[in-house]
Amino acid sequence: MLPSQEKILSLPQLLAKVAQWRQQGQKVVFTNGCFDIVHMGHVDYLEKARLLGDKLVLGLNTDQSVSRLKGPTRPLQDEMSRSRVMASFWFVDAIVLFDQETPYELIKAVQPDVLVKGDDYTVETIVGHEVVLANGGEVKTIPLVQGYSTSQVVAKVLADQHRLH
């Protein structure tokens, strides 16, 4: 098994890994998303998220979850492809797939020390913020790099394709 594949965990495997990290005094950061087409904005965001602690856990939406959130034409890449791409980054320490609309149950199970989302959210609108705060953790937002979004990338590809035909 390749090192990146070893980062893709089931929930029980993740919880065991998080317990091990906590025993070692490691600070666990959690974020989530679809990460369908990875762009520079994602890389910037995730690297900054990882710098808020010692380990970064990424909750990744399953294909069915992405379709429910983004529509029937998404995701463009299947969950195993997205998992492998995300696992290849040094700043992502573990990936777990979740099928719910939100990562609330996952956050409840993991109990991260730091919960992070982009600054298109406020602390109060981040799913699971109350769970993390009640457990003595922190909830933070990271400034997003302007001009980068998956929707913008998709729109540009479609516009370019339309121009060529």
Rank of each mutant, 00 (worst) to 15 (best):
M80G: 14
Q24N: 08
S151E: 04
N32M: 00
D160Y: 15
Q5W: 09
P112E: 08
Q26R: 10
S65L: 12
L60Y: 01
V38R: 00
L60Q: 01
L56F: 07
V132Q: 04
L2H: 14
D44A: 06
L14F: 04
D120N: 13
S81T: 14
Q24D: 02
K117G: 00
V153D: 06
H39A: 11
K27M: 00
M86N: 04
Q152C: 00
K117Y: 08
Q152D: 04
P75M: 15
C34M: 07
L106Y: 01
V96D: 05
E124D: 13
G53N: 01
P143A: 01
V114G: 12
H165L: 11
S67A: 03
K48S: 05
G118R: 05
R50H: 04
A49H: 03
P3H: 12
A49G: 03
T141N: 12
P72L: 06
F30V: 10
V139K: 05
E105H: 00
V123G: 07
L144R: 01
C34W: 10
G25I: 10
P143D: 05
V116F: 04
N32A: 02
V153T: 10
D99Q: 14
V127C: 11
V18L: 08
L106S: 04
Q24I: 08
F30P: 14
P75H: 11
V38A: 02
L158A: 07
Y104K: 14
G41V: 12
P143R: 03
H165C: 04
E47C: 05
G33V: 12
V157S: 03
L60F: 00
H129M: 09
V114P: 15
I8S: 13
A19T: 07
F91A: 06
L164D: 06
K140V: 05
A49D: 04
L58Y: 00
T122W: 00
A159W: 07
G137I: 08
M1F: 11
L144T: 05
L164V: 08
K117L: 05
E101N: 08
T31L: 02
L115G: 15
K55Y: 05
V132N: 03
V116N: 03
R74G: 02
A94F: 12
E138C: 06
L56H: 07
V114A: 15
T150N: 04
M80H: 14
E47G: 04
S151V: 02
G59E: 08
Q5C: 09
